[in-house]
Amino acid sequence: MLIYDVMCKFWIHLKERFEESDYLELPTDANIRYAIGTFHVRGHIAPCFYRYALTYMPGAGLIDGEILESLWSVLNHISPSARSASDAHREEILNDMMNHSNFKKLVVIREC
């Protein structure tokens, strides 16, 4: 199963991309199912939702498909501080927050 936020357009020429690549190889007997993560598929047109949503694929499970969007809610807490910062300082603030989040995942610290 391949999950990508614009899979409805991306899969059309996927086999050609593999054939043109020196580094990628697609198994000839592969049974590939194309999907769009739950977070992104809600923004697509209705036919995309029914064709590519993980909700309607047996055995797919429910996942967002990407982790970055799940960090946005955490980053919203620091947005007032970052909003008034210079570009360089804003980048440092965001990097520090993301690194802190990654460190907490590494040592399995959970916030209550």
Score class of each variant (00 low, 15 high):
Leu54Thr: 03
Asn102Phe: 06
Trp72Arg: 06
Arg42Asp: 14
Asn31Glu: 08
Ser81Ile: 07
Met1Thr: 04
His44Gln: 09
Ser79His: 04
Leu2Met: 14
Glu20Lys: 15
Met97Ile: 07
Glu91Ile: 13
His77Lys: 10
Ala82Met: 02
Pro58Glu: 13
Asn102Gly: 00
Tyr52Arg: 03
Thr55Asp: 14
Ile67His: 04
Leu26His: 04
Asn99Tyr: 10
Phe49Thr: 09
Phe10Val: 01
Asn31Leu: 05
His13Cys: 08
Val74Asn: 04
Asp22His: 12
Arg51Asp: 15
His100Phe: 10
Phe18Ala: 07
His40Glu: 10
Phe10Glu: 11
Thr38Lys: 09
Ser79Trp: 00
Phe39Gly: 06
Ile12Cys: 05
Cys8His: 09
Arg90Trp: 00
Trp72Cys: 06
Gly65Phe: 05
Ile67Pro: 04
Phe10Ser: 08
Phe39Ser: 11
Glu111Lys: 06
Phe49Ser: 10
Thr28Tyr: 04
Ser73Val: 12
Asp5Phe: 04
Ile3Cys: 13
Tyr4Gly: 11
Asn31Cys: 02
Glu92Gly: 13
Val41His: 02
Ser81Cys: 05
Tyr23Arg: 13
Thr38Gly: 10
Cys8Met: 06
Phe39Asp: 11
Thr28Trp: 05
Ser21Cys: 04
Glu91Tyr: 08
Ala35Arg: 03
Glu19Pro: 00
Ile3Val: 15
Thr38Leu: 14
Ser73Thr: 13
Gly37Glu: 06
Ser86Lys: 13
Ser70Trp: 01
Glu20Pro: 00
Met7Tyr: 01
Leu106Lys: 03
Glu111Asp: 11
Leu14Glu: 04
Arg90Phe: 00
Lys15Val: 11
Met98Arg: 08
Leu68Glu: 12
Glu20Ala: 15
Leu14Tyr: 09
Thr55Leu: 15
Lys105Asn: 07
Arg83Gly: 00
